[in-house]
Amino acid sequence: MALTNLLPDFLIAPLDHLANLVRKHSLWPMPFATACCGIELMATASSRYDIARFGAEAMRFSPRQCDVMIVAGRVVMKMVPVMQRIWLQMPEPKWCISMGACASSGGVFDTYAVVQGIDRFIPVDVYVPGCPPRPEQLIRSILDLQEKVQKTGTIDAREFASRTAYEGPTALARELAPEEMIVSPGDFNTATRLRSLPTSSE
């Protein structure tokens, strides 16, 4: 905050632009690899796909040195506090890629132990579908993230300070029973809306 308070307005925009330009080409991923997607993450980093072409090859296993957390694989009950702790340890500005169906929505694992989407517990910027996604898809998501950084980033991460509201889906008051989850196929109104929208007043 201090930097932008001292500078006149007309200097801030070019500074932001410059910072984004530098940042987006050296996104250092924190590979939070739990399951199958972790192997595809390794494949993305190895010779055939070579994520180094996009400046994101410097995998750092210490969260203190990372810019983007790639959650690859399903996250289960026992792992959620670990994930949140690692996310909190990363310095600003930071982004999160939810890689694969399991991390994004629970995927095929709709069971007692698996969290149905990590965005219930930490903020997510880019979702990558697929089970597991192909390496090309992960590279595309890095490119998308670069675009997002270029468009929204600021030099002192002001854009995050304003986002105090929770952005993910609301936690359900109770788990839906299987028969409640089934939507009759012809009814498009209910088919698209499985749960009520989050209320902003909370």
Partner: peptide
């Protein structure tokens, strides 16, 4: 039950501003 009794979502949420 297969989906448990809701233990899986019994965690606090971290928002952008908090992190």
């Amino acid at each position: 039950p297969l989906r448990g009794y809701g233990e899986r979502h019994n965690f606090p949420t971290v928002t952008r501003a908090e992190s």
